[in-house]
Computed example of a mutant assay.
Amino acid sequence: MVKFLGLHETLDLHELLTFKNLCLTKSATMGALVQDEELKTILENDVTTGQLHIEQLQQFLTNREAQ
């Protein structure tokens, strides 16, 4: 089994990681500005899940061995 990601897979992961970081930044920024409590809760949940997703994507890039 291959122990390293292909170049195109690594580039795709970097694109996803960049996109998720942008989404996380936007949700965190907007969460501080909104007045509606329900929307604030939704954005806080999005920040929490976004952080988990970013950590998972980073693990793919740092732990390159196949499982």
Rank of each mutant, 00 (worst) to 15 (best):
residue 1 M to S: 09
residue 2 V to K: 15
residue 3 K to G: 08
residue 3 K to R: 07
residue 4 F to P: 02
residue 6 G to E: 15
residue 6 G to N: 13
residue 7 L to R: 14
residue 7 L to M: 14
residue 7 L to S: 15
residue 8 H to W: 11
residue 8 H to G: 01
residue 8 H to T: 04
residue 11 L to C: 03
residue 11 L to N: 02
residue 13 L to V: 07
residue 15 E to T: 12
residue 16 L to K: 12
residue 17 L to S: 12
residue 17 L to I: 09
residue 17 L to G: 07
residue 17 L to F: 06
residue 18 T to F: 04
residue 19 F to I: 03
residue 20 K to I: 05
residue 21 N to Q: 12
residue 21 N to F: 04
residue 22 L to A: 08
residue 23 C to Q: 06
residue 23 C to S: 08
residue 25 T to R: 15
residue 25 T to Q: 13
residue 26 K to R: 15
residue 27 S to Q: 09
residue 28 A to T: 08
residue 28 A to K: 02
residue 29 T to W: 00
residue 29 T to K: 14
residue 29 T to C: 08
residue 30 M to K: 12
residue 33 L to N: 02
residue 34 V to H: 15
residue 36 D to N: 12
residue 37 E to S: 05
residue 37 E to V: 00
residue 38 E to L: 07
residue 38 E to G: 03
residue 40 K to D: 04
residue 41 T to M: 11
residue 44 E to D: 12
residue 44 E to A: 05
residue 45 N to Y: 03
residue 46 D to T: 00
residue 47 V to M: 09
residue 48 T to A: 11
residue 49 T to C: 04
residue 49 T to R: 06
residue 50 G to Q: 06
residue 50 G to N: 07
residue 50 G to I: 00
residue 51 Q to V: 07
residue 52 L to D: 15
residue 53 H to I: 08
residue 53 H to E: 13
residue 53 H to M: 11
residue 54 I to G: 09
residue 54 I to W: 03
residue 55 E to S: 10
residue 59 Q to N: 06
residue 60 F to P: 01
residue 60 F to G: 04
residue 63 N to L: 06
residue 64 R to I: 00
residue 65 E to P: 00
residue 66 A to G: 07
residue 66 A to M: 10
